[in-house]
Write a protein that binds this DNA or RNA. Structure first.
Lengths: 208, 208, 208, 208
DNA sequence: CATGAATGAGCCTTCATTCAT
DNA sequence: CATGAATGAAGGCTCATTCAT
């Protein structure tokens, strides 16, 4: 068997293969999850899309739970990273940056990870560990928004009575978008982003 | 024997009993549904809480789906009726009435039907018929809010670019409340209602 | 309650009512049995056709088994009686009388008790007691045919090697008719009767 | 390890194993079906005879219906093949060949597939799809008999008024045999075959 | 008599998970 | 690594039967 594994192949190669495999699996999982929802998602379908067997998935993940957790983790982290970048861009007023943040998030959950936002609404009937993980991601996510909002409050641009509650309202409203949004044209997206973001900005602007 | 079975109560009594039974079943269903979510809800548990057998439920509902549909229907209708009443009370400005509406809804979904709001977020993995029923209830519900908002727009008290989207944001934010709200005291409820309602009112107030 | 049951009503009245009730139940049972087959027949449907409740059937029959047994018994007895009459009519040759017998049976199982013949094919998955009862009826039934056949043999009109087997072949062929026969017109019946009877008569005629 | 898993047998071996497994399952199914009848047959018993679990059957068949259909299909096809062979043997008169055909069929349904003939009597209470499949098999089966009968008619050896009806009578009589035949000795079989076949041949011989 | 209510036993089906090869 | 096979546990649903009213 050693003859079949040329010395030249560094152990890194196999590790890389494995990582790529895992990535593919997570992608397929995200797809099925987004299309069917958690309970209608079964390992058979995920495996099928990968031209694999259900059993093979267990080489990479110890359970369905772990698989879904990893999947949510990757998506959530990607979203958070993208938002963190958008937040780090310090140009413009706090309002401008908050709008950018909302639009970035909408783009993520509506276009790139269609309907995956519902996964973050913490459905009651999900396994506890997954819900906890999801919650952790949300806290991270909140932190990003919170910093921009704090900026706005400090500069007097924003006025809120209860920052936490305002943030939660924002959260609920944004994540609800994929539930109702049905685009007809490409340009519908941009327009919706702007309209929703503008509306939600009001949550932080002082009443007249 | 005549004394024990007065003619007068014959048909009414049975029907009344049946109605009460159904009501009890729906209540128990709402409870389990709220605690466990749809997919973790099994008929055994509902039956157990009623000191019944799974099979007995089938005397009243033809399937799990039908049972849940009826349950959502009852809760949704109750909520809508209460909101319709609140909306009909024409005193105060549109803002006052919208706040009252939001507070009423919050009270419904947070206190009286704890966490049942998520049931109206139309989870992907629910049976189609249930989702359709849920959607119908939401449209009814929207109509109530829409009328008050229209009033506000007519009198110039409200300013929104896109009424529909504003409503949806409101919807998302409000229904998200039960996901995060954890009261410590009785008075926490009222305070939360006010804070949330005030914040959300901003969605309809003209920007300064 | 005595006041409600006038002395004048003989006990015979109530007995007559009961007998009529039972007859109705048996008729309905035969209907459903013929339409759906034994295992697809449920007490609910029988009760429903009688504007009764499932539970009420138990006032007349101790179990589904007993009900079906009684039903088969009545139908079988009726058929046997009619055949016995036809056999008793001593005119004509044995061949004429056998043809008449076959035609009478065909009429019974095809037109009057449509498809009920399969009930006498002793399906494997029927409860043992019912099968035994069915078998008893068949023996009675066989006796009728046997006497005519014996006549034919005695007079030399019929020639068979094994009377029993010839009879069973006849039986199988006749009872299979309702499985395939689909009439278009009224006259189809008579024609089929004649054709089938003529053919089957050959089973008893001496080979040329 | 290479010695234990020769490349050459990789795909074939697995496939062969699977085919054998399926064959075993169908055999067990046929057994239970023949003993208990369709409605009294449950997957548990079939699985038990194979030292398997009910769930395991679903690796090979998607439902009880599909399993039974496959089972009937196999048996029916085997019978038809054997009969087709017997019919192809062109020696002897049409009468000889028809007798051979009948005897072959009797042997199939009485000895090799004990009592499975009733499965082809199209019980009313079977699922529609199974009945359709069963019907298709019967048509195939009829075709075999029909060709021999046509031969006999052409040569003037046979005389029938209605070929179709004669065939159906034959069918009914033959398939009824397993319902009543109870052998005491081995030789009972052959004797019964002959007697029955001779009798049934009369259906096609001209009346004297 | 009649019935609504209740039930226990049974069946088919699904699916995450394990394991030998 | 990959997979086919096998399974245990669970859930929804049906139905004949019993019983109190």
């Amino acid at each position: 068997m050693a003859a079949e594994q040329p010395v030249g192949e560094a152990p890194g190669r196999v590790a890389r293969r494995r990582r790529r495999r895992i990535s593919d699996i997570l992608t397929a999982t995200a797809e099925v999850l987004a299309e069917r929802g958690y309970h209608e998602t079964n390992l058979d379908e995920i495996a099928q899309r990968l031209d694999l067997t259900k059993a093979s998935l267990y080489h990479y993940f110890a359970s369905k739970e772990e698989l879904v957790t990893a999947c949510l983790g990757r998506v959530g982290t990607l979203v958070n990273q993208r938002l963190a970048e958008a937040a780090r861009d310090g140009t413009g007023t706090a309002g401008d940056r908050l709008v950018a943040l909302i639009e970035a998030q909408l783009d993520c959950i509506v276009r790139e990870h269609p309907q995956l936002a519902r996964l973050f609404l913490q459905p009651l009937d999900w396994p506890e560990p997954i819900r906890l993980h999801s919650k952790a991601l949300r806290l991270q996510h909140d932190e990003i928004f919170r910093s921009v909002i704090q900026d706005g409050i400090t500069t007097g641009e924003f006025t809120v009575e209860d920052e936490g509650i305002a943030l939660l309202c924002l959260h609920g409203a944004v994540n609800y978008v994929p539930v109702w949004f049905r685009p007809n044209h490409q340009k519908d997206y941009e327009q919706m982003y702007t309209t929703v973001a503008e509306h939600l900005l009001r949550l932080f602007r002082a009443a007249p």
